[in-house]
Design a protein around this nucleic acid. Structure first.
Lengths: 336, 336
DNA sequence: AATATTTTCGGAAACGTTTCTGAAAACGTT
DNA sequence: AACGTTTTCAGAAACGTTTCCGAAAATATT
């Protein structure tokens, strides 16, 4: 690839490169006529500024990095769409990397993005074996950082989270109200705060209604993970009356296995999912699920990052807690 | 952010920057002892090479750009995973951008990636209103380019496609074998070659069995698009006996609407999806679908790109056609 | 011991920008 | 007409690398 450069234009027009540069960043003194002359020539020659060179001298890139654990569930893609919307408005480009639920790859991705001089980072942590020291280092070096959804506990920076406690409590209460007492609780990996918060919600719902809690398990976020747990339960003949699942994918995986084994949902086993996917309304039975405002999460994260970018130096860590909704559908309601 | 540079190391060790540089790229002459001395100091100081500076001087980045239209269906994410796997093995980093089905955004993304000196581009076109002139320009400038899934007709470069003709024919025949004659054909936007190919397959299946074709329509790739078409059909009381849908999302959207209106699938309307999603086996009824080898598509695209990257200059455009499978499930089979 | 060869390194240019410094040109003021 | 201001521009340094060129040091050859 041959690129047209600022030098080519300067030579063509017999001006200094600095003059051409000024023509593109009006802020400096330049006569309108020469500016127009340069701009005209530039488009004529098909010139496009080289962001690489600019990054090098300005030590900033107008790029934002986003790191997510996976994008097979539609949750993260939707968050990204939200973030992109506000970042684009502020002329930032977005670089996406996915860590495939691997901490090593996640850190490697973060380093790559930092090496490439992103101006800030939006991150959702991978589930297992967190190693936060690199992120701590980054915050110490004043790199703008925002975590969302899967956030670390002891890093002083802005975060966007869902009120997992409240909605796990609410979902559990919903199941209790339906008359179920033996409720299996399934959450994501223990390291994630969101798992802890949901567990508290689950426990408190039981306390509030003065009934003993059911079994508690952890699980990954894929359909396979859910299916496997269901198979285990069946083989041990340990069938709960109701289940609060880690997410919709997990719930859907379980439902398939249970149905294949002849169980009726919700008549035999009621089930509630988490972080609503588009599928919830389309499977059979339709799935009751806690809906998270994915798009808003992305927008909020982007806005928090922009704040840090603008108030360089002084950064007051903020935690934005977003609200959700329980979409009650067939999978948790026994009629009559 | 303060970065440790090659200069800092050079100063610290009283050597020239060129020597430090050599220490990192062994290919040059350097005494093993000084190399080790430098490498040791470098890790001590937390040095990480700055890819930006390197790009500028080498005029290459070891970055590959991937542009996809959307990532709400799991199709594209899976392709990306496949591509990443082989590119990572060859030390390329992957930058992902999504065009949101907008041609303008797609071209803008491509330009951004080119400006950022990616060494090559893997692209799946946005559906509507293609403007290929920029891509033609890129191929003329020898930028390595590979298209997949949604490919342009008259650009001379490598492509990875699915045998849409064959599998549309096969899926149509499957429906014919089940005894259905009034088969509605729904494809993606007309501009896409894959739509044309599927249409040919659909037509030829009818020719082969000497029955007249049914109605043909176009549709987007989302559940909403499918739902809307179903609503239209119902309001016009124009109900086909069977449907070959544009993709699984479209099929699932239609199924929901039909079921809500009291139609039985497949007893009243049989339906076949395309490009199998994980959901196909989990909805009710389970969905018959043409499965595409998503992961392999990504890998093939990456390999074709690597070939171009390696044989600089001479590039013989290749088109890889991948095979699929018809997963027959409940939605297209009436028992008894 | 003198010369030739190889190994190892330093210096400097280059990549494409931005931005600092200062000088020339244009204008205004007296 | 002489001076002070302002406007407009050119030149050069800088960003962090790689890489070319050539020189010094080490080694080999005669």
């Amino acid at each position: 690839m041959k690129y047209v450069t600022i030098k080519d234009i300067a030579k063509e027009l017999n001006v200094a490169v600095s003059t051409v540069s000024r023509a593109f960043n009006d802020k400096y003194d330049i006569k309108p006529e020469t500016r127009d002359r340069i701009l005209k020539k530039a488009t004529e020659m098909g010139y496009r500024p080289n962001p690489i060179a600019r990054k090098l001298v300005q030590q900033r890139s107008f790029n934002i990095g986003i790191i997510i654990p996976e994008f097979e569930n539609s949750f993260f893609p939707q968050v990204i769409m939200g973030a992109q919307e506000v970042l684009y408005q502020h002329n930032y480009q977005v670089l996406i990397m996915q860590s495939n639920e691997s901490v090593d790859l996640e850190i490697q991705n973060a380093k790559t993005l930092v090496d490439n001089m992103v101006d800030g980072l939006i991150i959702s942590l991978s589930g297992v074996g967190n190693n936060l020291s690199y992120y701590k280092e980054l915050t110490e070096k004043k790199m703008p950082l925002v975590f969302f959804n899967r956030v670390p506990e002891n890093i002083e920076t802005s975060k966007v989270v869902f009120d997992d406690y409240k909605w796990a409590l609410f979902a559990t209460e919903h199941l209790i109200h339906q008359g179920f007492e033996d409720i299996l609780f399934i959450s994501g990996p223990d390291e994630l705060i969101l798992s802890k918060n949901r567990r508290r919600g689950y426990d408190d719902a039981h306390k509030k209604h003065r009934i003993p809690t059911g079994e508690k398990m952890t699980c990954g976020f894929s359909m396979q993970d859910g299916a496997q747990i269901a198979e285990n339960l069946i083989s041990k003949n340990n069938i709960p009356r109701a289940i609060l699942a880690a997410n919709d994918a997990c719930a859907i995986g379980m439902i398939r296995v249970f149905k294949d084994s002849g169980f009726k949902i919700p008549e035999d086993i009621a089930i509630v999912g988490f972080s609503e996917t588009k599928m919830a309304a389309h499977i059979s039975p339709t799935l009751t699920s806690v809906e998270q405002p994915t798009y808003e999460i992305g927008k909020a994260a982007a806005q928090l990052l922009l704040e840090q970018l603008q108030n360089k130096g002084i950064h007051i860590p903020q935690t934005v807690v977003l609200n959700g909704r329980l979409n009650v559908r067939e999978s948790s309601v026994v009629l009559g």
